[in-house]
Simulated scan of single mutants.
Amino acid sequence: MRVRLAEPKDTVSIAAIYNQRIEERSSTFETAPRSPADMLDRINAMERYPVLVMVDEADQVFGWAGLSSYRGRACYDGIADFSIYLDRSVRGQGLGKQLLQTLLTEAEARGFWKVLSRIFTFNHASLALCEACGFRQVGVYEKHACLEGRWLDCAIVERLFPVNQPV
C-alpha cells in the first residue's frame, strides 16, 4: 500500500469508507451518509488542508486521512483537526499508522504546529493509533454530543511539532 494526495476520482471511495463509520456509529457524530460531492468539497480545500488516500497497486482506495480547519480565528491558523478512516476490510493491519504518519509529515511541511482531534473514548483502536503516532491525550470532553439518544464522551488528542520561529 502507498499513500498519495487524493484526487477527484477518489471521492466515491472516500465517501464509501466514511459512510461505513457513519453506519457503525463508532467514529463520528454524523448520521447522514456523505456523497462523493460532499467529499469533493474537502479535496478542493487541499491547498491548505490536504486529504490523503491509501491505495493498493491497482490504485484502489482503502483509507483516507485529512486535515481541516480548527477554528476561524487567525491565531489558530497553525492548528489543524485531523480525520482518518480505513475500509473495514483492512482495519487492524497496521495501515492506519502509515497513513497517519504520512498525514503528520504533510501537516508539518505545510507549517502547522499542532494537529488534534476528538475521539470517542470507547474507540480504543483509534486512541492506540494516536498514541503510537506520538499524540498525547490532553483531556476528555464529557457529554460532547448526543448520538441517537446516547451522550458520548470524546478524548482530546494532540500532536505538537517543533516551532522554529519566534513568536
Rank of each mutant, 00 (worst) to 15 (best):
143 K>F: 01
153 D>K: 03
158 E>T: 01
138 V>Q: 05
151 W>I: 06
163 V>E: 04
125 A>M: 12
156 I>G: 00
135 F>P: 01
144 H>P: 00
154 C>N: 06
123 N>D: 09
140 V>G: 05
132 A>F: 09
126 S>G: 12
160 L>C: 01
132 A>P: 02
130 C>Y: 15
141 Y>A: 02
157 V>D: 01
129 L>C: 13
139 G>E: 01
133 C>E: 07
138 V>N: 05
148 E>H: 14
141 Y>R: 00
155 A>S: 08
140 V>P: 04
139 G>T: 03
123 N>C: 08
156 I>F: 11
146 C>H: 14
125 A>E: 14
161 F>S: 05
127 L>V: 02
165 Q>D: 13
150 R>G: 00
144 H>T: 00
153 D>C: 04
162 P>Q: 06
143 K>M: 01
157 V>M: 08
143 K>Q: 08
125 A>C: 11
128 A>H: 13
131 E>S: 10
128 A>W: 10
126 S>P: 10
163 V>M: 05
138 V>T: 12
157 V>I: 10
146 C>T: 14
150 R>A: 07
160 L>A: 01
122 F>M: 06
133 C>N: 07
165 Q>V: 15
127 L>K: 03
130 C>I: 07
140 V>F: 10
145 A>V: 09
123 N>F: 09
156 I>W: 10
149 G>R: 11
154 C>P: 00
165 Q>Y: 15
123 N>R: 10
140 V>I: 15
161 F>Y: 07
154 C>I: 00
144 H>W: 07
150 R>K: 13
145 A>K: 11
122 F>T: 11
158 E>C: 02
132 A>D: 13
144 H>N: 08
146 C>P: 03
137 Q>P: 04
142 E>I: 01
128 A>L: 11
156 I>R: 00
147 L>I: 14
155 A>Q: 04
146 C>K: 15
134 G>L: 07
149 G>D: 12
152 L>H: 08
162 P>C: 05
158 E>S: 02
139 G>H: 03
149 G>H: 12
164 N>E: 12
158 E>H: 02
162 P>K: 06
131 E>D: 09
163 V>R: 12
141 Y>S: 01
122 F>I: 04
138 V>E: 12
